[in-house]
Amino acid sequence: MTAFWTQFAISFAAIGLMIALAAWAKIARPQPALTPDQARKLISLDFSGLDLDLVWMADDGHGAIARRGDQALLLFAVGDSYATRCVAWRTLSQVEAKAGQVRLNLNEFDAPKAQFAVSGAWPPSVLQGAA
């Protein structure tokens, strides 16, 4: 048993070093700002068969929102990648933008929140009439 925990401690230290090495190497995916076209493609990969003409782009280009009736389809950054979720439009429209950010509580265990950079009015007017 002692041998196991010794190995556990050594492995834990090695993990710290490997994470530090990965941070030093800077070999994550490059994350340039998305174009609306790219955002549309990423959203439609997860919600196919939808007409996604109207897409609001986050200010920093690292997120986007499309509307489908009373639902909002969210595309948000997770590290150097993206995830999508669907929330009620009401939820989205009731959130307030603070310090250039909108933080949405998704209430999902595997995706607790999504964050978007915002400078203009909230909710985005481009999506207001998109229902």
Partner: peptide
């Protein structure tokens, strides 16, 4: 990681994911 850092092999590491 080191080989990818110097462009010798293809590998993508995001520290938090790692």
């Amino acid at each position: 990681i080191v080989l990818a850092r110097f462009g010798k092999v293809k590998a993508v590491y995001e520290p938090k994911d790692t």
